[in-house]
Structure formats: structure tokens, C-alpha cells
């Protein structure tokens, strides 16, 4: 692999770094914010499981993005990922809620438009619908979990110290599950656009373990996520992560677990096969927003507690992000592709 190819991957790595820096707080924010576990421990668990999730289960959601727009030239992939990264950066700077997922979808649509590649409208609709379904599903799962926890506590009446010990372990496990889900589901955002033009080649270790070029890409992307987690997420965990603190630790556990389940549901090929084989409607394998899953879960628990916890401003902001993020990313992508093709003389599609 030459240096140019490596350079073109940097925009994806930047996106991965920003994902790790921001979204690890959804997974371990409560545990670190309440000082239940040290940041270094959280970062180590989070990094390991993000990498495992990405390499083992990352292909499903990435495949869907590839169907939306198979970006077949590396310079094109570079611009698409860069547009998404710049959009995420600018919107975060402006204090607007942003999801990497929505940015990357907008940027791919920009590429489709630029390269005259037809957009599969059915698939687009499916992806758009998951943006709504993801927080709703997270809310539903969180409500169910919270109800079950309450039921268990009502029946078993464990000692307060025991509840705390369980919660502590539960938050660590939910965090590990969440990190796996984040890797499995969101690696598509980071490296999905590079899959059709991957500069890597497949190889096998000791003639037994086959490592595909996609898995190598995902490993690289997930290492970038891990670097984001290690270098920058502590600050986010101690600020944004504390958004979950008004919840009791038990409610926070329900929120984090619901978030993790949703992310894995939207990335699990096994579940898709299982549902399809029984003639049931399948859950589309689409990258979804980790932050919006958490917000959905927190609102769900708030509803169960009496409905006073709904922050309409937050919901309005998320709704605005659904429109604004892909639009901005799409425009950046289109302009960026134009420059890459006509100024830098690089092919952005074949």
C-alpha cells in the first residue's frame, strides 16, 4: 500500500477519532462520571470492545452504506469521509446535536449526486426510518428493563449495598456491551465508504485465520476510535456524560444497556438471518446514532417515571439535526468532490 492510499484513509481515521472522543461517553459516561471506575480502566475496556465489535460484527451496517453508494475511488471516499468529519466538527462547535451517521449518509448522497449514481430510494427511506426507530426502540427497551429492575427489586428486596455492587458490575458489563455495539454498528460510519476502494488485500494467518481487506480497514478504523477514546473522551465523559447523572445509577444502567442492545440489533447479521429464516420482518443493518439511542432511552425512563423528564428542546434539536446534518454534509461532499476532481486531478468515481 503506497503513502497516497494511506493519506486518503486519514479522513476516515479522523472521523473515527472524533467518534471515539464523543461517543465513548454514552457508554462509560455514568461509570466514570460517578467515579465508579477509573477512566483508564474504562478506556481500556472500551477500546478493546470497540475493536472486537468492529472487526467481528462490523460488516453488516457497512454493507448497507455500500449499497446506498458504493464509492469506488479512494480520493472520493476521502472527500466523503472528510465532509462528514468537517460537518460533525462544525455542528459540534455550533452546539448543535449531530450524529456521524447522518453526516456520512448526507456525504454519500452528495457523492451519488456528483457521480450521477442513482440513489436507491427504498434503501434511503429504510435508513431514514431507522433514525426515528432507533431512539424509539431504545426508549421501549429502557422502559422494559427499568420495569424489570423495579419488579426484581420489589420482589427480592436486596440490601442497598448489594444493589450498589450489582449496579457497579452491571455498568461495567453494559459499557463493554455498548463498546462492542458501538464498534459493530458505527465502524460503518468511519470506514464504510472505503470498503469498495479498500487499498488492503486479503491474507490468512498460519493458513487458518482469514483476514479480509474489509476487516483490516475496520481494525484500522477501530484503532482510530480507540485512540479517540483514550486521548479525548475523558473530558466528554465528565461533562456530557454527567447528563445522565440526574438518573439513579440503576436507571443509568437501564439507559446504557438499552443503548447497547439497540446498537447491536442494528448491526447483527445473526439476528437478521434468524428473523428472515422465520419469515419475520428484519431489522435493517444500518449505522445508528449512539447519542440519540441514549437520549431515547433516558426519555423512555423519564416517561415511565411520570413524563416530566422530556426535554422538548433536545428533541427539537435532534429533529433539526436529521435535516441539517445530511444537508450540510451533502453540500460539503459535492463541493469537495468537485475540487478533488478538477483542482487536484484525482478520480473520485469510476
Amino acid at each position: 500500500m503506497d503513502l497516497t492510499a494511506l493519506f486518503f484513509l486519514t479522513s476516515g481515521l479522523l472521523l473515527g477519532w472524533s467518534l471515539g472522543a464523543n461517543d465513548a461517553a454514552n457508554v462509560f459516561g455514568t461509570a466514570v462520571g460517578t467515579r465508579m471506575i477509573r477512566f483508564t480502566t474504562a478506556a481500556a475496556i472500551c477500546s478493546c470492545f470497540v475493536i472486537l465489535g468492529a472487526v467481528i460484527s462490523g460488516a453488516g451496517a457497512a454493507g448497507t452504506l455500500g449499497e446506498l453508494g458504493a464509492i469506488d475511488a479512494l480520493p472520493g471516499s476521502f472527500i466523503v469521509a472528510l465532509s462528514a468529519a468537517v460537518t460533525v466538527y462544525l455542528m459540534t462547535k455550533s452546539g448543535l446535536p449531530v450524529s456521524t451517521t447522518q453526516a456520512i449518509v448526507g456525504a454519500i448522497l452528495g457523492w451519488n449526486l456528483f457521480s450521477d449514481n442513482p440513489t436507491h430510494s427504498g434503501l434511503l427511506l429504510k435508513i431514514l426510518s431507522t433514525w426515528l426507530v432507533c431512539p424509539l426502540l431504545a426508549a421501549g427497551i429502557a422502559i422494559l428493563l427499568f420495569w424489570l429492575v423495579r419488579f426484581y427489586l420489589g420482589i427480592a428486596k436486596p440490601h442497598l449495598l448489594r444493589i450498589d455492587a450489582y449496579t457497579r458490575l452491571g455498568l461495567i458489563l453494559a459499557g463493554a456491551l455498548g463498546a462492542y455495539g458501538l464498534g459493530a454498528n458505527n465502524i460503518a460510519n468511519v470506514m464504510g465508504v472505503f470498503v469498495p476502494s479498500s487499498p488492503f488485500t486479503d491474507f490468512t494467518i498460519a493458513g487458518a485465520i482469514a483476514i479480509s481487506s474489509t476487516q483490516q480497514l475496520f481494525l484500522m478504523g477501530s484503532i482510530a476510535i480507540a485512540v479517540g477514546v483514550i486521548t479525548y473522551s475523558e473530558r466528554v465523559m465528565l461533562t456530557i456524560g454527567q447528563g445522565l447523572l440526574p438518573l439513579t445509577p440503576l436507571a443509568a444502567w437501564c439507559a446504557v444497556t438499552a443503548h447497547s442492545i439497540v446498537l447491536i440489533l442494528f448491526a447483527s447479521r445473526g439476528l437478521e438471518h434468524f428473523l428472515a429464516s422465520r419469515g419475520l420482518p428484519t431489522i435493517p443493518l444500518v449505522p445508528v446514532s449512539s447519542s440519540q439511542a441514549v437520549v431515547g432511552a433516558v426519555i423512555g425512563i423519564g416517561l415511565l417515571k411520570g413524563g416530566t423528564a422530556i426535554r422538548w428542546r433536545t428533541l427539537g434539536g435532534i429533529g433539526l439535526g436529521w435535516i441539517l446534518t445530511p444537508l450540510v454534509a451533502g453540500v460539503f461532499s459535492f463541493i469537495g468532490l468537485f475540487f478533488m476532481q478538477n483542482v487536484f486531478d484525482q478520480p473520485v468515481f469510476r
Binding site: T34, R35, M36, L161, D164, A165, T167, R168, P249
Partner: peptide, 8 residues
């Protein structure tokens, strides 16, 4: 020493 949730 055995790290209960600090808040509690």
C-alpha cells in the same frame, strides 16, 4: 477501599 458508588 471497596469502591461503593461514591454518591451512595
Amino acid at each position: 477501599s471497596q469502591m461503593l458508588i461514591p454518591d451512595s
